[in-house]
Design a protein around this nucleic acid. Structure first.
Lengths: 322, 322
DNA sequence: TCAAACTCATAGGTTTTCGTTATAGATCGC
DNA sequence: GCGATCTATAACGAAAACCTATGAGTTTGA
């Protein structure tokens, strides 16, 4: 009889009495006085409006009703016992869930992190939501997601007193990317802002942080980018660049992991952007959430070290590797 | 939230808070003050050593652990709720069990009663134990069976102060029984004790009440019965009589229900014996037990009225009929 | 058969738990 | 920022659970 399980005393007593076949023995086992059992059982019988135990001199036995009621009692006890053990599982990270929000860019950059986490904690159910960068802060605040992964927001209201906190994971430098058949394929030299303005580009929609970043860069250097195609799909961009004459601007590490596209570093570098973890600063953080933030920072450090990485087809949640 | 169900208050509160999404609303619904909920939930969280609810200003939400624990809580609640409803079933006789003890003779006389009961209360699980007449009283006292059906015991210690009571169901007259091929087949006249002593008989073992009864009768009339075969099986006896030259002595109603055997009434009648219901006088009687005794007395009365009955092969628990 | 031992039930007093009121701290909407 | 709303805390009172002492009924063993 586990004291740690929340369970009605009368029912614990009932089980113990049947188990020991005697009020007295059960009382000893439970470290309570025997009259306590008498009283509690009496009240229980009144509450269910039926006798549960027959006290016939030598032995205590179950009535018909008692037999059936005890069966349900035991099942209920097992259920609550399982409940407390399940809580342990949550604490151990052998159970739980984690809702992750990220953008169409950051998923490419961190899906490996997700794979690592999933492998380390196979019991945690991960669910990811792709969403615009602007939504992520709200989603965190409104508790639609536990953790967000996004680019740092451009200066505007960096920490507006809300209870979300953003921590740096790593930085990404932005490069021009061209395919194998592109005229600049294999170019080692850096490319100037002016030259960059001459390339036909496939780019993300202007509501992406990455796009506004590029637009600002071009504006600062007095060039007007030639946007051939706009899309909200990173896969589309990569596909177009891989097999066509169009260029694009993407984080360097994404370019490196994709087959058939090559980076060309711009001469005045495009200001690098921070990839950040976004989560509630105050309030409850589930064990899974805490574990994820811990793993993420650790992973970001290792990422700097093991820079060379295998080329991958775009595939969030792909097979994990260091 | 049913007050009649035995269930831990903290868990009832937890369910209500989640249901209403607020401590205050749950407190109103439960007709308790709001601080009660705060305290109980706090204690519950301490007892399971994990936060279950996140109070984040506007809304109250479940934590990861709370989600899982609530699931188990609801199941446990349902289990105990089902338990109290199951007790109602027992009282309604739509569930329950009844253990019946009888002898190899009385089962033939009352299996129709059993069939009737089973049909009236299909939810009651009947289990029958065939046992020597002498065991039945002990079995009732030791609560191995709920009800016994046996012949009245010959005078000896009729009611020896124990808490078993015997009530009369009906009486049986004992007759000589012969098969179709027997010399006396079809005899209408009564048979004297002396003539009876000349018949070769197949009889029950001497430890059966019926047998001792016959032995006494013979002794009183100064005849020595010719026992050709002794057995403890009534079926064997009937089989032997049906298809052989042997006779036997059996209750009249058994003879009447068997094909191919015929009764011959002895001239000084063998003292008739009472078939009795045996059960505990004091202590708990299950609803099923009570219902059975009620039905049995009613059935015994009707039995006297509808005397003619169909011929049956020996078959306890055969298809019921009036 | 009787007494000792054992069982559960009951009564009265004590401790613990639970519930309530009052109030403080925090958050949300205006 | 201020009022409204919600939860947490504190202190007190009510209810319950528990314990000791004792009684009634049974069983055991001499």
């Amino acid at each position: 009889m586990n004291r740690r399980v929340v369970f009605p005393r009368p029912l614990q007593y009932l089980m113990a009495i049947v188990e020991h076949g005697s009020y007295t023995k059960a009382a000893e086992a439970l470290h309570v006085s025997q009259p306590s059992l008498s009283q509690q059982i009496k009240q229980l019988e009144e509450s269910v409006m039926a006798p549960l135990l027959v006290r016939s001199g030598r032995s205590v036995r179950l009535t018909d009703a008692g037999e059936i009621y005890l069966h349900h009692t035991r099942r209920a006890y097992g259920e609550l016992d399982a409940g407390t053990r399940a809580i342990e599982d949550v604490k151990n990270l052998s159970r739980g869930s984690l809702r992750l929000g990220w953008t169409p860019i950051t998923d490419f950059l961190t899906c490996d992190l997700l794979g690592t986490f999933s492998m380390q904690h196979p019991g945690i159910t991960l669910s990811t939501l792709e969403m615009p960068a602007d939504d992520i802060d709200n989603a965190v605040m409104e508790d639609r997601i536990d953790i967000g992964i996004a680019f740092s927001k451009a200066g505007t209201k960096d920490l507006n007193g809300k209870d979300v906190v953003r921590t740096r994971l790593f930085e990404e430098t932005l490069c021009l990317a061209v395919g194998n058949s592109h005229a600049r394929a294999g170019q080692k030299e850096r490319i100037s802002a002016a030259e960059l303005g001459k390339e036909s580009m496939v780019m993300l929609n202007p509501n992406f942080a990455l796009r506004t970043q590029v637009d600002e860069y071009c504006h600062q250097h007095g060039v007007m980018p030639k946007i051939a195609i706009e899309t909200d799909s990173l896969s589309v961009i990569i596909e177009m660049v891989q097999f066509g004459p169009l260029a694009t601007i993407l984080p360097l590490s994404i370019i490196k992991t994709q087959c058939g596209i090559h980076p060309i570093v711009p001469a005045p570098a495009i200001p690098s952007k921070e990839i950040q973890l976004i989560y509630r600063s105050s309030g409850y953080k589930s064990p899974a959430c805490r574990a994820f933030t811990d793993l993420a920072t650790e992973w970001a450090i290792n990422r700097m070290v093991n820079k060379p990485r295998r080329k991958l087809r775009p595939c969030p949640l792909a097979s994990p590797e260091g």
